[in-house]
Nucleic acid binder design. Sequence first.
DNA 1: CAAGGCAGTCAACGCTTGTTGGCCTACGGA
DNA 2: TCCGTAGGCCAACAAGCGTTGACTGCCTTG
Lengths: 196, 196
Amino acid sequence: MTVSTRTNSPTPPPRRSDATRTAILAAARERFAADGYERATIRAIAKDARIDPSMVMRYFGSKEGLFAAAVALDLRLPDLTRVPREEVGRALVGHFLGLWEENEELTAVLRVGATNQAGAERMQGIFRDQLLPVARQVCPDPEQSPARAALCAAQLLGLALTRYVLRLPPARELTREELVAWLGPTVQRYLTAPNP
Amino acid sequence: MTVSTRTNSPTPPPRRSDATRTAILAAARERFAADGYERATIRAIAKDARIDPSMVMRYFGSKEGLFAAAVALDLRLPDLTRVPREEVGRALVGHFLGLWEENEELTAVLRVGATNQAGAERMQGIFRDQLLPVARQVCPDPEQSPARAALCAAQLLGLALTRYVLRLPPARELTREELVAWLGPTVQRYLTAPNP
DNA sequence: CAAGGCAGTCAACGCTTGTTGGCCTACGGA
DNA sequence: TCCGTAGGCCAACAAGCGTTGACTGCCTTG
C-alpha cells in the first residue's frame, strides 16, 4: 500500500495514514452490513483491516463515531424532472436495486437502523434529506408528498429487507427486470396517482 | 428428564410456576421488540419479570431457547377463499395492521430477524408455512405463488419496518384507513394480476 | 408428622466488549 | 545527519454478558 507522495491538491494534505483509514472504513461497512451494530465488534473490524483495535479508537473516537463515518450515505437519486413522468416509478426502483447491489452501505444502515436507535435516526435523516425532496418534485399536491414518499420508502425498503437482509428465497430469485416490472407501477402510483 | 407419574389429563397439569413463566415471556417479548436480540439482556428481562436471571435459564435453557419460546408466532391469516376475490388485498393489509398493533411479537421477530441469523431463519419459516399457503389459495398460477407471496411480504414488511421499527414520522401519521386504501390495491395486484 | 421436590435467591465463573495509556518505530523535513 | 512526530502495537482496565451450582424455604404428598 503505497501513498502518493507529492500530490499538492487543494483538499487537506494527504496523510500517511489514509490507507489505513479507508481500510478500516471498508472493513467496518462490511461488518456492520453482515452483523448489525452490536455484533460487529471493533476487534473484528480491526482484524479485518489488519490493524490494532486501538487505532480504530484513535481515528474515529468511538464505535459510534466509526459507524457514523462508515455510513455517510448518499443515495445519488436522479433528477426526476428529467425523467418522463410515467417512468419515474421504474426509474426509482431500478436505481435502488443498483444501489443495493453495488455496495454494502445500504444493507449496513438498514440492518443497524433496525437494531439501534441512532441507526433509526440516521435512516430518518436519509429519508428526510434525500428521498423526500425528490418526491416533492413529482407529487401533484406538495402537502401530500411526505405521505407518498413514506409509501415509496415502505415498498423499497421492504424489498431490500426481504431480499438482502432476511434473504427470503423467492425474493432473491426474482430478476432485476421482474422486480422493476412489478414494483415500478406501485411506486409510480404512490407518487403520482391523484388518490388511492 | 422426569415423567409426570399419575396425571392422565391430555394437557399438562398446571404448575405453580406458570405465572412466572408467562411473566418472563411477556417481558422477553417486550425487550426483544424494543432492543433487538443482542441488547435485550437476560438480566434486564429477569428484572422486568421481578425474578432472578437464573430462573430464565432454568425454564428456557438459554437465551436462544427463550427467544424461540417468546416468539412462537401465529399470523392467524384468514381463509382467503371466503373473502370476495377483489377484496383479498385490502383484507390482508387490514389483518396485518391489526396484528401489528395488538402485540409486540411481530415487532420483536422483525427486529431480531434483521440482526440475527436465527431470527432471519425464523422469519423465513413464518413466510413459508403461513403466508405462502394463503397466497397459493388466490394466485392464478400456483407456480408463481412464491414470487407473488414474496412481493406481498416485501410490501407488508416494508410498511411495518418504516412504521414500527424505523418510525418514519410520515409513515406513523397515515391512518389505518389510508394505509388500507393505498396498500390494498398493491397487494391485490401482486396476488391476482395476470402479469405485472 | 416427616419427607421430597419445586420455586426461587445468591454469589460467582469465565468470557467478551469498548476503551485507555504507555511504549516503540521509522519516516521526513531541517 | 539528526530529531520531532505521526503511525502503530501491546497490555491492561472496568463493565457487562450468559451461564452455573449451591443453597433456602415452602408446599404438597404419603
